[in-house]
Design a protein around this nucleic acid. Structure first.
Lengths: 216, 216, 216, 216
DNA sequence: TATGAATGAGACTTCATTCAT
DNA sequence: TATGAATGAAGTCTCATTCAT
């Protein structure tokens, strides 16, 4: 997932153009994630990208176009881990790896996580079709994987979708609600020890639950 | 958590004033949750509350004041379930009740959940002090409860904060990401059966995990 | 010049009404003098008068009506000293008395002076007819007096109007520009010594000039 | 005192920008002087400057910024004559020249005089620091000059500050109260004869007074 | 006489976007 | 590619005034 890929057909014939587009999208992600579509001013993005507003508009003709481009990148980041969920290695290793990777993404791309979250919370106006298409397809394949594991007796008969939702919710929470988490723990995922502790805690809870194993 | 209480010193000397303030705050919650602070127009709230923009501004002098009032209400809703987490009944019943009640709140007040989430994701500019004060205090008391259960051998030695985060994340997810959930399942928490199923799934996963109990 | 007289036919049948009207006009004078017609809010006057905006509007139906009333009072104050300029006592005593009384009015009614000044500076939209009528008549009579003195060889042949303008300008200056004067001298007319000093200085300059008498 | 200088760091990188700023400030001076800060609409200034309101706001982001810029120019105009008061030529010629130049400024920049007056009368909120700094310094130097003349027996022992106030008051009066003056005389300083007559009258009164020279 | 509620006409300001160079 | 200039539509907020009690 190299971020300099997704230049969706933009004006980038020259090297400098491509570089500018990357700088813009980096800035846009941060600003949109922080203030939302309406709350972000184009000038603010331009400033963060180190260029004039007018020049930014040379690359992205409208605010919506810019937002859409930033969002597309975000979605790529969001989908990546799920794609790698592999049926071959079984639920214990497979889910552990998935949780760990999702959490790693929350650490590395917290703004992407937040931008995605805000978009969904506002009714996903720009993402509806992708959710119903690409995401739904992918999810269907992965739930089949999980169902296979259940059928093989490798895990408890949980509803696969709820499992996915739980993994998404918990791992993303550490990016999306980092402010709250920082207030209560004094740490966030950028802290190595806290990251490791969180990883262990989530894997433990989701795989084994919080109640004692031995009866009582 | 009766919503008609929080008239924090507003112009509500008469009955009609208090009623208007309630209508305004109801509308404000919905609109702000949907479009954010910047994205919501005052007129939009006024219309939803069935009054003129100017009349709304008679009660709340600025948009920020209105937003702050709506947010305060939201926070009350958010904190309520946690306050009821009771040490006496033990982890199995206690956590089950807490999860169920949080989920019930997600069903009944999805907009409040979303508004709270958006505020936190933007860095909690209006809520920071409350988070560090009231919330931190409450959380400290409740983590003590959980630690007590662990010390008594009633539950596995999980880090209490991560447990709370997990419960918050999962239950709120069904409100905050309802659009995505609706796209993938065709349902949301307003569907009785789906609500029951979700409740069971979350309680099951968090209490017992997803791996089979008997080493299988 | 008792200020409780000029209630120009206002609703003041009761004692309390008359008292309110006085309080309002006192406040209006101060506020209008400080911020001008447009710059003054009705509520500001009401507050200064210790009543609600709506109640003030019971006495003066519009802002303009209130302004006109305050201005009329002001004009009375302004004209008073000139009326007393007396031909019988000759220029030395007469002009001295006039200057002293004008300066005394600047000390006692600085807001009235300022309100009058602002109104004139903006083109006297509310005062034009009075200026051209009442004031012009009065001025004509007084310039005749001065001309008489000149004809009698009692004073130098100065243009009477310029003399009046000079007296008005200098005496009013100490009220209107009191801020500047306070900055440069640390004092204003409320300081007894400064008042006396100013009086002597003005009388001296206007009557005798600043150059040495004996052919220097 | 060339008015096209004071572009205090504004957006004026191009020639067109500088020209626009000048046109705006010219218009602003007139409008503010006539209607005050609150009473003047931005659109009104824009119209007078021959551009759209939004374009004006491109150069001056707020009304206050525009007002401050106009006021600064005004102050420059106001201070100019005083700077030229010269000790070398003695009181008769020096004061005559000063009075004449002040009066000339009243004729050429009546709006600047009025704007300055209104600002002072409202308590000089935007000018306080400049008055206490630049103006106070300048005044101190000039009063020293006058004191020197008095010590040399070249003029009567008047308090220099009162002399300055008298000159300011009288000369500015013909600009600030021109409406009243026009009502009473039918003329103003734009009338050549009236200007000359006024000049002579003021110089005469201030230098020699109104009482007869011979045996007083 | 007094006040809370309601309104409409403004006025300021922001901001995405277009134009011209 | 880049930027200064210009604009129009929108949105917030103010304030005199009216209504109802």
């Amino acid at each position: 997932m190299d971020k300099s890929e997704a230049n969706g057909g933009k004006r980038s014939k020259t090297r400098i153009g491509a570089a500018n587009i990357d700088r813009i999208l980096d800035a846009a992600l941060i600003e949109f994630a922080h203030s939302g579509l309406r709350g972000t001013r184009i000038e603010q993005v331009a400033e963060a990208a180190g260029m004039s507003k007018t020049n930014l508009l040379y690359y992205f003709r409208t605010k919506d176009e810019l937002y859409a481009a930033a969002l597309t990148r975000t979605l790529d980041i969001w989908l990546e881990p799920l794609r790698e969920l592999d049926s071959a290695i079984g639920p214990a290793a497979g889910l552990t790896a998935y949780i760990e990777q999702k959490l790693d993404y929350s650490r590395r791309f917290p703004e992407a996580s937040r931008l995605f979250a805000m978009e969904i919370m506002q009714g996903a106006p720009h993402l509806k079709t992708v959710l119903a298409g690409e995401l739904a397809d992918l999810v269907e394949r992965k739930t089949a994987t999980i169902k296979g594991w259940i059928a093989a007796g490798l895990m408890a008969p949980v509803e696969p979708l709820h499992l996915l939702f739980t993994i998404w919710a918990t791992t993303q929470h550490y990016a999306d609600f980092s402010e709250q988490i920082r207030t209560l723990t004094g740490k966030d995922l950028t802290d190595e020890a806290f990251f490791a502790q969180t990883k262990a805690a989530l894997v433990g809870m989701i795989l084994k639950g919080v109640l004692p194993r031995s009866p009582g």
